[in-house]
Write a protein that binds this DNA or RNA. Sequence first.
DNA 1: CGAAACTCCTCTATAGGAGTTTCGGTGCGATAGT
Length: 486
Amino acid sequence: MIRNLYDHLNKQFGYDMFRIGQEEVITSVMEGKHTLAVLPTGTGKSLCYQLPGYLLKGIVIIVSPLLSLMQDQVEQLKINGEKRVTALNSFLDPRERNQIIQNLQNYRFIYTSPEMLTNNGVLQKLKQIDISLFVVDEAHCISQWGPDFRPDYLNLRTIRSELNNPTTLALTATATEDVRADIIEHLNLYDVNQLVYSVDRPNIALVVEEAANYSDKVKKLLQFVKQLQKPGIIYFSSKRLTEEMAALLRNNGIAQSAAYHGGMDREQRILIQQQFLHNQLQVICATSAFGMGVNKENIHFVIHFHMPYQLDSYLQEIGRAGRDGKKSIAILLYSPGDEFLPLQIFENELPSDYQIEQFYLLNNNSSDKASLLNLTEIQLRFLTYYQNKYDKSEVEKHVKRIRDMRIQYKQNKLNEMIKWVKSTTCRREGILHYFQEQKVNNVTDCCDVCGVDIINYQTAFQDTIRSQNENWRLMLKNLLIRGDEE
DNA sequence: CGAAACTCCTCTATAGGAGTTTCGGTGCGATAGT
C-alpha cells in the first residue's frame, strides 16, 4: 500500500516525496477512518484528498467555502490531466447545472458549497451515487461562520447522515481544541482520527508595534511599507480604508499597490488577485476577504493595520507569508482604542431582543418582517435558520440564548487577541500556547519581545537599484508604446 | 466607540456650523430586470 501511494504520487502529481503530514492523512482516509487534519499553512492540503481520489473506487465530494477556490482547484486538476472534475455551484447556468446533476456518477471529484448541498434535489441525487470520501476543506469555517454568517455549514451534519455517513476528511490550517471539538460535533464525526501538526512558522518574525494614535499609525505604516522587502499584504478592517491607503501608497512612490475587498466586482477582485500572483502588484491593501486560496510563495510581509477579531484569523493571515521558506515578517500595528470597533460590531450584528420577539410573533412574510423590523441580511438569516429548529413556544427563548452565547464567544476570542497584543512575553510562545502547543523551534528573529533585527527584512540595497532600473525600463517602454499609438 | 455622512438651519445664505444618524468583515444562491 505504501509503495502504491508513492507510485501514484509520482505518476499523478510528479512528486517524489510527501510533505509533512500528507502521508499520514492519506493513509488514514485510505483505511476508511474519519480524519481531522490540521496541517500548517502552505503544506499542500489538497493532495490529501486528490491522491486518494485516484485509489478509491467511488467519488470524492469536496465542500469548499469559496467559489473562486473551487474554480482554482478544478483548473489545477484539469491542468494535471483530470477530466472527471467539476464545481457544482452558482457559476453554472441552470441548463449546465442540471446536466451535471444528472451525470454526477461520471465524475471523480465534485467541488461544491454547503448551500448547494442543502438543496434537496442535489442531495437526493448524491444519495444515489457511490461516495468514497467526503471532504470539508477549510473546516474551521464550520466553527467560524456556521452559527451566524453561513448557517448552511451547520447542515453538514444532517447531510452526512443522509449520505449514509461516508468516510470524512476535515482539513484546516488552524484549529484550537475548541474549534476541533466544534468541527467534530457539527459533522458528527464519532471515532475520528485527529492528525494535528504544529501551527508554528519559524521563518515568520512576529512584531507588534504600538502607535500613539491614528495618524502615527499611518506614518509608521508608510515607513514600513517603503522599507520592507515586497511583495506584501496589509490587512484593514474597513473597505474604505483599503482604497484610501492603496491610493496613499501610490502617491508615496509605491506604485504597484491596489485595494481588495468584498464590496468590489467579482471581475475586479479576480483581476487584482491575478496581478498580485503574477508579481504585477507589490502591495495589496485588503480586508479579510483576501487570502483564502492565495498560494503565492514569495510574500515577505503581512502588516495588520487593524488587529483581526481572533488569533485564529491572525494565524491564517500571517501564514500567507514566507511560503518559499525565506525570512518574512508579520507586523501588527496597534493604537489604543482599536478593540472597540470589533466589540461594537459583535453587539449589533445579531438581532436585538425586540427584533427576536417581533419576528416570531408577526405573521407577515419574511421580507415584510425584514423591512418592518429593519433586519440586516445576516439577522434575517439567523432568525430564519433557527425558526424550524425549535418548538414555536420556545423558539424565542432559545434564539436569545444562542445569540448571547455567540456574542460571548466572539468577545472571548477578541479578548484572547487583545491579551496577546498587550502581552510582554514571547509572541511565538503566546500563539503556540493559545493553540495548546509548546515552543520547540529555536528562532533567531523570533518576535519584538525576544528581539528582531528589522534590517533583515528590508529591501536590500542591490534590490532597490535593480527595481529602479526595471521601473525605468518600464517607464521608457510605456512612453514608447504610447508614442506608437499616438 | 468614533468617524463620516446626512439633515437642517440661517434675518433666504448656495457655505458652513450644529445636531443627528449611520456605519463598521466575511459569501453562498436565487431573483429581478437589463
